[in-house]
């Protein structure tokens, strides 16, 4: 029995070592390290962002750039990863916070430790050197809503979906959407701010519920990347494609079928690949002690003329012009 337990122990150790072996090479280098940490790994949105990080790494062989993220949509898990990277002593962090407030403490420690911090989708983050936004969030939310209103003919019941009540950017989008809808007295908002937690299936179930509850509902404005898929599926199944309007943030490829069937009216997005590249470019600039100036060109599509203003903390807010609204007619131009 004892020999068996010894064997098992050795087995576990061996497995752990073999897992760690490829990683061993990564750490033993002198290149500056920019670590990108996303909200959650393994969903299409951040898979697309990782292509941007990879492209950056390829174009900048003198920098070690990589992406990681938690397996679950839990800010505590993302916090752990950031903590460990700070402890490991990376040179720069590019973070897409699950919840900016939760990371404040650790980002402050990172900055104190001399680590450059760049964030994305967190324009209220105080402890950051620069927060990158693809566009002005209020403008984007308004644009989504305007497209929705167009489809609805300015009349009817509509509702909104967000990733979670803590998702800063999502709340901004639906917030300015609501403001925009006030222009149309015929539009009535019901059950706003449904939380999806980025779970396409959960969103689908919730949408079915809403369709049942309000059989005469005419519009949905969604926020998280998977929401538009879940709601679209529900609309499709209910046979309401083309009769109910759906506008939300989403990627072209995953949304293709639903766009074609008319379940999704239009998707809004920015290319996470470009955003990822932009974050890393800014991180690199800051590592090289260069300044971020208003109107500068980052060398990344959609960020060729960024506005740089003061952020809520000591850092800056960098806003690009990367908003895209696509529908059935033109989504094929975008291949992701």
């Amino acid at each position: 029995m004892k020999s068996l337990s010894k064997k098992l122990l050795i087995g576990v150790a061996a497995a752990a070592v073999s897992l760690a072996a490829p990683a061993a090479t990564v750490v033993a280098q002198d290149k500056p390290v920019i670590a990108t940490v996303v909200k959650i790994s393994g969903i299409p949105w951040f898979d697309r962002m990782s292509t941007g990080v990879a492209a950056f790494a390829l174009a900048n062989p003198d920098i070690d750039a990589s992406q990681s993220g938690p397996a679950t949509a839990d800010s505590a898990q993302q916090l752990q990863i950031v903590n460990d990277l700070v402890a490991k002593g990376v040179d720069a962090l590019a973070v897409v916070p699950m919840d900016p407030a939760v990371l404040e403490g650790t980002l402050q420690r990172a900055i104190e430790r001399g680590i450059i911090v760049v964030t994305h989708e967190a324009d209220n983050q105080t402890n950051t050197n620069a927060d990158v936004e693809a566009f002005n969030n209020a403008d984007y939310g308004t644009a989504l809503n305007e497209r929705l209103a167009q489809c609805m003919g300015g009349e009817g019941k509509w509702t909104t979906f967000v990733g979670s009540l803590g998702s800063r950017t999502h709340m901004q989008w639906v917030g300015s959407g609501e403001e925009n809808a006030k222009k149309y007295p015929g539009m009535a908002l019901v059950d706003p701010n449904n939380e999806s937690f980025d779970d396409a299936n959960g969103t689908y179930e919730k949408a079915k519920e809403i369709l049942r509850k309000y059989p005469d509902i005419k519009g949905f404005q969604t926020s998280a990347g998977n929401d538009v898929l879940g709601v679209g599926r529900a609309i499709d199944e209910a046979g309401l494609s083309g009769k109910v309007c759906l506008v939300g943030t989403g990627l072209p490829n995953p949304s293709a079928d639903l766009l074609d069937s008319g379940a999704i009216t239009a998707i809004g997005f920015w290319d996470p690949q470009k955003a990822g590249m932009a974050m890393n470019v800014i991180a690199k600039l800051l590592l090289e002690k260069k300044e971020l100036t208003d109107g500068m060109d980052l060398g990344v599509e959609g960020y060729d003329h960024v506005s740089v203003t003061k952020g809520p903390g000591a850092g800056v807010l960098v806003v690009g012009n990367g908003m895209v609204l696509a529908d059935k007619s033109n989504y094929k131009q975008y291949l992701f």
Partner: peptide, 20 residues
């Protein structure tokens, strides 16, 4: 967990390792 983060390994590997 920290070991795996140091090694830059995906969070999914961590869940697997914990299970193991």
């Amino acid at each position: 967990s920290s070991l795996l983060n140091f090694g830059g390994l995906s969070n999914f590997v961590r869940d697997f390792a914990w299970g193991l």
